Simulated assay, not measured.
Amino acid sequence: MALSITLHIRLTDIEPEIWRQVCVPADYTLAGLHFVIQAVMGWEDEHLHLFIIDGNRYGVPEDASGGRPISEEGNVRLSHILMEGETFLYVYDFGDDWRHEIKVESIGSKPTELRCLDGKRACPPEDSGGPYAYSDLVEAVRSPKSADPEFLDWVGDFDPEKFDQDLANKRLKALTSSSRH
C-alpha cells in the first residue's frame, strides 16, 4: 500500500530550471496537490489551474472551457492514479501559461509528513507574463539602471536565484493545519 509519493516539479520553458522536490502523503487528492504546488512554488492561488494526466483533464469542472470536460480534482486520490516514473502536467494561470512538469520519482510504503525536500531558484512573481516574458524580468532585475522604475517597483525585491526551503515548508505546515488535502 502506497503511503507517500515523492514528486519532482519543474517549470517548463525556463532556463536555468526552477524546480521543487516534495514528499506528499499518497492519500492526498489532486485538489490537495494543487495547494502543495502553490505552497512550494510560491504562487498565490490567484488564477485557474488544470492537471493533465494520461490525456485526462482534472481541475474544477466549473472552470471548463471550450467544451472539453474537466473531472473533479477533489475526487481523485494520488495513490489511485499515479505510478512511479510517470510524468504529468499542471498548468497554472491560463493567461501566463505556467506549465509544471511533474515526475513521480518514488512511491513509498512508509508514512511520511508533507514536506519540501529540495528546490532551486525562485518562482516568478504572479502576473509576470509567463515563461516567454520571464527572461525580460530577470534582465530587468539584474540591470536595474536600464529597466523601467515602475516595473521594478512592481517586482519588488525579487531575486531569481533565491529559493527559501524553510518558507516552503512553513507554507506546507500551514496547509496541513487547514486540512486542504
Rank of each mutant, 00 (worst) to 15 (best):
L3P: 00
G130L: 05
R99K: 14
D166M: 13
F94T: 09
A133V: 01
Y134T: 04
F163Y: 15
A168P: 00
H49P: 01
A2S: 10
E113W: 01
L50W: 02
Y132G: 14
F88L: 04
S143A: 12
H34K: 11
T12G: 06
L117W: 07
Y134G: 06
I81T: 11
G55I: 01
A39D: 07
I14W: 02
V91R: 15
G108Y: 05
E46M: 07
I81D: 09
L172Y: 04
P149A: 08
A122L: 05
S106W: 03
Y90V: 06
A26P: 00
D45R: 11
L172T: 05
F94M: 10
Q165W: 03
D63H: 04
G74D: 12
V91L: 15
I14M: 07
H80D: 15
D136E: 14
V155K: 04
S177V: 06
S146K: 08
T176L: 15
N56Y: 04
T12P: 00
T6E: 14
E62G: 01
L137C: 12
H49I: 03
Y58E: 11
G67N: 09
S79P: 00
D159E: 14
L78H: 08
G85F: 06
I107R: 13
Y28H: 13
I102S: 03
E150N: 04
I9N: 09
A140T: 03
F51Q: 05
A2Q: 05
F51G: 03
P69I: 08
G74L: 06
A39L: 06
V155I: 15
H49V: 02
E126L: 02
G32I: 12
Y92C: 07
R57A: 12
E161I: 09
T176D: 11
G156V: 10
A174L: 15
T6A: 12
L152S: 13
D153G: 00
I14Y: 01
F163N: 05
K162S: 15
H8F: 08
V22G: 01
F88E: 10
G66E: 14
P124V: 01
